Amino acid sequence: KHCVKCNKAITSGGITYQDQPWHADCFVCVTCSKKLAGQRFTAVEDQYYCVDCYKN
């Protein structure tokens, strides 16, 4: 599998969101770069925000 963000191979520790593979380090808030894996977040038009950034 290849990460949908960076297009590099996922060798271990990847996550899946909406049936797409991601590196955990690539699945981050677009505003603050906080890792979103296992966290609550909001998706708006294929942009992902942590709860704090989305509220602001």
Results as ranks from 00 to 15, higher is better:
Lys1Ile: 02
Lys1Glu: 04
His2Ser: 13
His2Gln: 06
His2Ile: 14
His2Pro: 03
His2Met: 15
His2Ala: 08
His2Val: 14
Cys3Glu: 04
Cys3Asp: 09
Cys3Pro: 00
Cys3His: 01
Cys3Met: 01
Cys3Trp: 00
Cys3Ser: 01
Val4Ala: 05
Val4Phe: 14
Val4Lys: 02
Val4Leu: 08
Lys5Gln: 14
Lys5Ala: 07
Lys5Asn: 11
Lys5His: 15
Cys6Asn: 04
Cys6Gly: 04
Cys6Gln: 04
Cys6His: 03
Cys6Pro: 04
Cys6Phe: 02
Cys6Arg: 02
Cys6Trp: 01
Asn7Met: 15
Asn7Arg: 13
Asn7Ala: 15
Asn7Phe: 08
Asn7His: 05
Asn7Leu: 14
Lys8Ile: 09
Lys8Val: 14
Lys8Asn: 13
Lys8Trp: 10
Lys8Phe: 09
Lys8Tyr: 14
Lys8Pro: 01
Lys8Gly: 12
Lys8Met: 12
Ala9Met: 13
Ala9Thr: 08
Ala9Lys: 12
Ala9Ile: 15
Ile10Trp: 07
Ile10Met: 04
Ile10Leu: 09
Thr11Ala: 08
Thr11Cys: 05
Thr11Glu: 10
Ser12Val: 11
Ser12Lys: 11
Ser12Thr: 15
Ser12His: 09
Ser12Met: 14
Gly13Arg: 06
Gly14Asp: 13
Gly14Ile: 13
Gly14Met: 13
Gly14Cys: 12
Ile15Phe: 07
Ile15Pro: 06
Ile15Trp: 07
Ile15Val: 10
Ile15Thr: 13
Thr16Leu: 10
Thr16Met: 02
Thr16His: 02
Thr16Asn: 15
Thr16Lys: 04
Tyr17Arg: 10
Tyr17Thr: 11
Tyr17Leu: 07
Tyr17Gly: 13
Tyr17Pro: 14
Tyr17Ile: 12
Tyr17His: 14
Gln18His: 07
Gln18Cys: 13
Gln18Asp: 12
Gln18Ser: 11
Gln18Pro: 06
Gln18Asn: 13
Gln18Tyr: 08
Gln18Thr: 08
Asp19Glu: 04
Asp19Ser: 11
Asp19Cys: 13
Asp19Ile: 01
Asp19Ala: 05
Asp19Pro: 06
Gln20His: 13
Gln20Ser: 11
Pro21Gln: 14
Pro21Cys: 05
Pro21Asn: 10
Trp22Tyr: 05
Trp22Met: 06
His23Phe: 00
His23Glu: 02
His23Val: 01
His23Gln: 01
His23Thr: 00
Ala24Gln: 03
Ala24Ser: 15
Ala24Lys: 01
Ala24Phe: 08
Ala24Asn: 12
Ala24Gly: 10
Asp25Ser: 11
Asp25Tyr: 05
Asp25Ile: 04
Asp25His: 05
Asp25Glu: 14
Asp25Arg: 10
Asp25Pro: 04
Cys26Thr: 00
Cys26Gln: 01
Cys26Lys: 01
Cys26Arg: 01
Phe27Ala: 08
Phe27Trp: 11
Phe27Thr: 04
Phe27Val: 04
Phe27Ile: 03
Val28Lys: 13
Val28Trp: 04
Val28Tyr: 09
Val28His: 11
Cys29Asp: 00
Cys29Pro: 00
Cys29Gln: 01
Val30Arg: 06
Val30Gly: 08
Val30Ala: 10
Thr31Asn: 15
Thr31Ala: 06
Thr31Cys: 09
Thr31Phe: 13
Thr31Lys: 05
Cys32Lys: 00
Cys32Gln: 01
Cys32Arg: 00
Cys32Asn: 00
Cys32Ala: 00
Cys32Leu: 00
Ser33Ile: 02
Ser33Leu: 09
Ser33Thr: 10
Ser33Asp: 14
Ser33Tyr: 12
Ser33Val: 08
Lys34Tyr: 04
Lys34Val: 07
Lys34Met: 06
Lys35Arg: 14
Lys35Ile: 09
Leu36Ala: 06
Leu36Asn: 06
Leu36Gly: 05
Leu36Cys: 02
Leu36Asp: 01
Ala37His: 13
Ala37Gln: 13
Ala37Trp: 13
Ala37Phe: 15
Gly38Leu: 07
Gly38His: 06
Gly38Met: 06
Gln39Phe: 06
Gln39Leu: 11
Gln39Ile: 08
Arg40Tyr: 03
Arg40His: 13
Arg40Val: 08
Arg40Glu: 13
Arg40Phe: 05
Arg40Asn: 03
Phe41Asp: 02
Phe41Cys: 10
Thr42Val: 07
Thr42Asn: 01
Thr42Ser: 11
Thr42Ala: 04
Thr42Phe: 03
Ala43Gln: 15
Ala43Pro: 06
Ala43Val: 08
Ala43Met: 11
Ala43Thr: 09
Val44Glu: 13
Val44His: 15
Val44Tyr: 12
Val44Gln: 11
Val44Asn: 03
Glu45Ser: 13
Glu45Ile: 06
Asp46His: 05
Asp46Arg: 09
Gln47Asn: 15
Gln47His: 15
Gln47Pro: 02
Gln47Val: 11
Tyr48Thr: 10
Tyr48Met: 13
Tyr49Arg: 09
Tyr49Ile: 11
Tyr49Val: 12
Tyr49Glu: 08
Tyr49Gly: 06
Tyr49Thr: 14
Tyr49Asp: 09
Tyr49Lys: 08
Tyr49Pro: 03
Cys50Pro: 01
Cys50Arg: 01
Cys50His: 12
Cys50Trp: 00
Cys50Phe: 00
Val51Lys: 15
Val51Gly: 07
Val51Ser: 08
Val51Glu: 12
Val51Ala: 10
Val51Cys: 15
Val51Thr: 12
Asp52Cys: 07
Asp52Asn: 11
Asp52Gly: 09
Asp52Tyr: 08
Asp52Pro: 10
Asp52His: 14
Cys53Lys: 03
Cys53Arg: 00
Cys53Tyr: 02
Cys53Val: 01
Cys53Met: 00
Cys53Pro: 00
Cys53Ala: 00
Cys53Asp: 04
Tyr54Ile: 01
Tyr54Ser: 12
Tyr54Gly: 12
Tyr54Glu: 12
Tyr54Pro: 02
Tyr54Cys: 09
Lys55Pro: 15
Lys55Cys: 04
Asn56Leu: 14
Asn56Ile: 14
Asn56Ala: 02
Asn56Gly: 04
